Simulated assay, not measured.
Amino acid sequence: MKKTEKTIVGISIGDINGIGPEIILKTYEDARMLELNTPIIFASAKLMQFLKKHFNSSINFFSIDNPEKVVHGKVNVVNVWKETIKIEFGKEDKKIGEYAIKSLEAATEALKKGSIDLLVTAPINKHNIQSDKFNFPGHTDYLAKALNGESLMFMVTEGLRVGLLTDHVPLKEASQHITEDLIISKINTIITSLKRDFGIVKPKVAVLGINPHAGDSGVIGEEDDIILKPTLQRIRDNGHLVYGPYSADSFFGSNAYKNFDAIVASYHDQGLIPFKTLSFGNGVNYTAGLSKVRTSPDHGTAYEIAGKGTADESSFKQAIYTGISIHRNRIRFDEYSRNPLKKASN
C-alpha cells in the first residue's frame, strides 16, 4: 500500500448497543480530524448510515470492500458484514457481541498486514463477547496473542502514565500472580515503551506496594519484602531508575507521582482508580509491548446513556491523538536504530 504523510487509523466499532458508535461519529464530525489522519471504520456501510440518521450526524461515509482501497480525506467504512443488525441501545446482546468481535478481528488483520498504521478500539462488553471461538477477558489479551507480544495495560494522560503488574484478575488472586519473572517482564516492557513510544531517554519509574503501606516491614503481609523489594533491587542493579515500593494510599494525593515518568501498580484498581480520578475522562488505555500500536478510550460501553446523544467523545479523540503520537515516535526511534528489539532481530 502506498503510504502518505497522513496516518491511517483503523477503528473497531465495539459494542454497537453502547456509546462506541456515538463517540466515533462525534470525533469525526470535527473536520480538522481528517487533516490529521484518515480513519477506516470496520463495520458496514448500512450500519453507519443507520447510526448517522439516529444521531443526526453530518458525516458522509465512503464505503470500501477492503482497507487497501482507502481514500484520504474521507471517513472510510470497510464492509465486514452486509446484513442488517437489530440495534437496541443500552441492551446487552450476545449477537451484538459477535459483531463486535467480527469488527475487531478484521481490524486486527489489517493491522498485522500494515494496511492501517494503528488501531483504536471502541468499548466492548467483556461478557457478551465470550464464545467457544473467542475466550479472552478483553482487547488486551486477544491482541497479545494475535500480535505475539508481551502486552501491558498502560493508562496514559497528560503528566501521568500508569502500568499494571496484574490487570483483569480477581483481587484475591492478584498477589499470587506477582512473581519475580512477572515484575521484571512488566517493568522492562514499561521502560522500553517509555523510550520507544514516548521518547524518554532515561525514564524514572515508581512501583507501588502490593500490601497496604508496602507491608509495613512484614506486619501487613510479606510479599513486598520477599518478592517486590529484592526484584526491584535486581532491576536497579541493571542500571534502570526504578524506585519503590511506595505506599499507594498517599502516593497520588501527595503529588509524588509527578516526579516519575510512569507508575507501576500491583493490581487493577490500585492504579486505575487514581488514574481515572485525575484524568477526568481524557485518559487513554494503551497496550504497550506489542509490535503494533493500539489505543482505546478509558471508559466502557456506558449502556445507561447509549443512544441518547449525550456521550463525551474526549477520551476517544485523545486515544487517536495518542496513537498517532506513539506511531510517529516509533518511526523516529527506529530510524535512529536505537531499538534493541530491532537490533536483536537483525
Rank of each mutant, 00 (worst) to 15 (best):
T4R: 14
E5Y: 09
E5C: 02
T7H: 06
E22F: 02
Y28G: 01
Y28Q: 03
M33E: 13
E35L: 10
T38P: 03
P39T: 01
P39H: 02
P39L: 01
I41H: 02
A43Q: 11
Q49D: 15
I59E: 03
N60H: 07
P67M: 02
N76K: 05
E83W: 08
K91H: 14
K94R: 14
K102C: 11
K102E: 12
L104W: 07
E105T: 13
K113Y: 06
V120L: 05
A122Q: 11
P123W: 13
H127R: 09
I129F: 07
D132E: 15
F136T: 03
P137D: 06
Y142H: 07
A144W: 04
K145D: 13
L147D: 08
N148L: 09
E158D: 13
G159R: 10
L160Q: 11
V162Y: 11
G163L: 11
L165I: 12
H168L: 04
A174V: 02
Q176L: 11
T179D: 09
I183P: 01
I184S: 00
S185Y: 01
I191V: 15
T192V: 00
L194T: 09
P203E: 04
V205I: 14
V207C: 13
I210K: 01
I210R: 05
H213G: 09
G215D: 13
G215W: 09
G221D: 03
D224Y: 10
I227G: 10
L228R: 07
L228Y: 04
P230R: 00
L232W: 05
R234I: 00
V242R: 02
G244K: 07
G244A: 03
F252K: 09
A256G: 01
D269C: 12
S279L: 02
G289K: 13
R294V: 12
T295P: 06
T295F: 07
S296W: 10
H299Q: 05
Y303R: 07
D312W: 08
F316I: 02
Q318N: 15
R330N: 04
F333P: 01
D334K: 12
L341W: 10
K343E: 12
S345Y: 05
